[in-house]
Design a protein around this nucleic acid. Structure first.
Lengths: 215, 215
DNA sequence: CCGCAGGCGTACCGTACGGTACGGTTCCAG
DNA sequence: CTGGAACCGTACCGTACGGTACGCCTGCGG
């Protein structure tokens, strides 16, 4: 059984990327019903090629998730002159990005796929999703938070705790409800409220961690 | 194809409950690999009986989730004399219950199963899990919050928003990381920190919604 | 004692799908 | 022009699993 998982290798030929796009499309529209035959037909390639390129079904799945997750790129925040207003805008931007990503159809599909995968003692997809989702935001947000603390604009002991509180304030129960297919949370319904939610979460975050807040 | 989904009928004979217990055990230990043959063997019953009782595989799955989810019962909080201390203890208790439930192995399994199910345009399991998980807590917490507001101990416009903020402060990124199989979050690791997390979340909740907090 | 309903165990069927093999085509190097 | 590498399309294989059929046993009402 050829494994050849190219986890840390995101270089795919255009043809391979076309295959991955087809796989992702099938994943999004058809739910979990991703079959090798379907991918081959959709991408107009042979199954043999799929197996040559990706090893097995898991390899194809991993490559798809890896490749797509890596495409999520958050805007870099200017950290040079960090007054109160700029900090607040940065935080708001992170909240907006986070909400936009997790409510997107692709993100929901990828998270569902990874959760399903994790239910079978396979945690590779979960790690990839975590790494490119929450943890990516954390890596980018933490320096901002610490810069804010250095500038006496924020107050906290652990930037890790501050980040996780931020995550909770922003995401709340939206992600789990979307993953569970809650019909009351249509995507348009959520998107319409993103701005209000962003503002509310940012207000609450500053209420808890702003310099003027109680220690 | 006999359907006979007994969604609002949680009366199962002891023999049927033994079957459901076997199904749940298999689900927990074997992940997604729940096969009718395995359940029949584990429960020492025939597949034909399974199909007679539960219709099909989905029916068995639904009955299992429904039956188990309904077993989660949260303690009722005394609402009669609601001073500040009692309110705080109640809130803490809800936070503790919520964290304890969602970090439990059974809850993780059920949520994973429901998410997997939702990836196939089947939202019945998701609804059941939602209904008996977050929404059950919401139903019980909201009256407490509103009583707290009536007693001038809390301040908020929408009890819905207050509840969802509470959920976010308590759950943060723990649930999604557990569902994705994050190895850094072993169950024991989380359980050891539950008390500290409960206190922190409650503190933050009161900082945001306590009567003395900024409007 | 008889008959039958309920249920166990097992054999069986059909199908879907992962994975492989193979012939045919295109394209490029020499 | 020729050999070969890459790849497409498709046929094929093996297996796992959902669902059904059937034979047998047990308990119980009459």
């Amino acid at each position: 059984m050829p494994v050849t998982i190219k986890v840390n290798e995101e270089t795919f030929t255009p043809r391979q990327q076309a295959v991955l796009t087809a796989a992702l499309d099938l994943l999004v529209e058809n739910g979990d019903g991703l079959t090798m035959t379907a991918v081959a037909r959709r991408a107009s390639c042979s199954k043999e090629t799929l197996y040559k390129w990706f090893g097995d079904r898991d390899g194809l799945l991993t490559a798809t998730v890896q490749w797509q997750a890596a495409k999520v790129r958050m805007p870099v925040v200017d950290r040079s002159h960090l007054n109160a207003k700029a900090l607040r805008l940065s935080i708001e931007q992170f909240a907006r990005d986070l909400l936009t990503v997790i409510t997107g159809e692709v993100s929901i599909t990828l998270n569902r796929t990874a959760v399903t995968h994790a239910a079978q003692e396979k945690d590779s997809l979960g790690i990839i999703v975590l790494e490119n989702g929450p943890l990516a935001i954390r890596r980018r947000l933490k320096p901002i938070l610490e810069a804010g603390r250095d500038a006496r604009l924020l107050r906290f002991d652990s930037s890790e705790d501050a980040y996780r509180t931020f995550f909770g304030l922003v995401v709340r129960d939206v992600q789990i409800r979307l993953l569970l297919g809650d019909k009351a949370l249509t995507q348009s319904n959520v998107e319409a409220n993103i701005e209000a939610d962003v503002k509310a979460a940012t207000d609450q975050f500053f209420a808890l961690y702003g310099a003027k807040a109680n220690p």
